[in-house]
């Protein structure tokens, strides 16, 4: 489903806050705050993530010079059971809140909804974004963090990061949403939770091709098409799928991935970064700044999410995935 925004909802400001390990990220100079305690001085991971979300929202409101009373909607989600970190952060924020779950695609699904609310005239300022916390996610989806299991080269590292965007009415010189595609759930039968890139790549492919087709565009119409957290192998797979369609390799270089680049070539992170905070902290810091400085004029942000739970995996289900895309122009 492709949405075309008539009123051009703008991204007024962006903020990204991360945990201490993320100072190894190649994007670190774009992050607003890098905290130096992985639990953010709290006694549980989940409370730490709540502080992470609050801090990112505070930074965002400060940058845009707005108060929480000015915010009409807070749209966000995370990966923890029932999304308590985000909901608890919303309790402190005290604004109208809709919790959203699209796994790591929440960074863009929230942005699309914020754009629609703005388009409707229902919102002047909406905060959209997502967050993830490494330790909280590990224990939720995999093993206790100190368990000595060998991760394969296809595994990805969930980042501790939050990224948020302030969405408002069209504003001269600000990046705005031209169109968006709400993805379909795609399942190509992948079932390895240590190989999420392979599960998510078909969803990204499906959403990107739908968007381009409905908008009558080519890949080369964009300065960059940024996927969220496919990782090193997932991005290769996505490019391989486009290569099968006869897309030339120089055009494939327009495709970039946040998770693939996040930690550079550090092999200790295996196939790269992942998590709802991965796409959010890359999109709402690095990509946003590149648009504001005019390096990119037209960008397609595609956040991908693996819609599994530990339960569904243990019950032998495959991993359905989703990708949401938003077309930004400046």
């Amino acid at each position: 489903m492709v949405i075309v925004f008539g009123t051009k909802p703008a991204i007024l400001a962006c903020a990204a806050v991360t945990g201490p390990l993320e100072k190894r990220s190649v994007f670190k100079s774009y992050f607003d705050t890098i905290m130096d305690d992985e639990r953010f001085q709290e006694n549980t991971n989940e409370k730490g993530q709540m502080v992470l979300v609050q801090e990112a929202c505070q930074v965002l409101m400060k940058k845009a010079d707005v108060k929480n009373l000015d915010i009409d909607y807070f749209l966000s989600g995370d990966l923890v059971n029932q999304m308590t970190p985000t909901s608890f952060a919303a309790r402190e924020l005290a604004v109208s809140f809709i919790g959203l779950f699209a796994a790591c695609a929440t960074a863009v699904s929230s942005l699309i909804i914020a754009g629609l609310l703005t388009e409707l005239g229902a919102s002047n300022f909406a905060i959209a974004g997502a967050s993830s916390h490494h330790n909280a996610t590990e224990r939720q989806f995999r093993y206790p963090v100190d368990y000595g299991a060998q991760k394969p080269a296809t595994a990805q590292w969930t980042v501790t990061a939050a990224g948020f965007a302030l969405v408002g009415k069209y504003h001269e010189g600000m990046p705005y949403m031209a169109a968006a595609t709400v993805g379909k759930v795609i399942d190509y039968g992948q079932d390895n939770p240590f190989h999420m890139g392979a599960a998510m790549a078909p969803a990204a492919y499906s959403t990107i091709t739908t968007h381009l087709k409905k908008r009558n565009q080519k890949i080369s119409d964009y300065d960059v098409i940024f996927t969220g957290d496919l990782g090193k192998i997932g991005l290769k797979l996505l490019k391989a799928m486009f290569a099968e369609d006869g897309i030339k390799s120089e055009e494939l270089n327009i495709l970039r991935d946040g998770g693939e680049e996040y930690f550079g070539e550090d092999t200790r992170f295996q196939a790269g970064a992942s998590g709802a905070g991965c796409s959010a902290s890359v999109f709402y810091s690095y990509v946003d700044l590149q648009m504001r400085t005019g390096r990119y004029k037209k960008v397609l942000l595609v956040a991908t999410g693996a819609l599994l739970s530990p339960l569904s995996y243990q019950q032998g289900e495959t991993i359905p995935c989703i990708a949401h895309a938003v077309e930004l122009t400046v």
Partner: peptide
């Protein structure tokens, strides 16, 4: 005695 640590090194 211990707290879980999510460090890489």
């Amino acid at each position: 005695l211990f707290k879980p640590k999510g460090t890489i090194d």
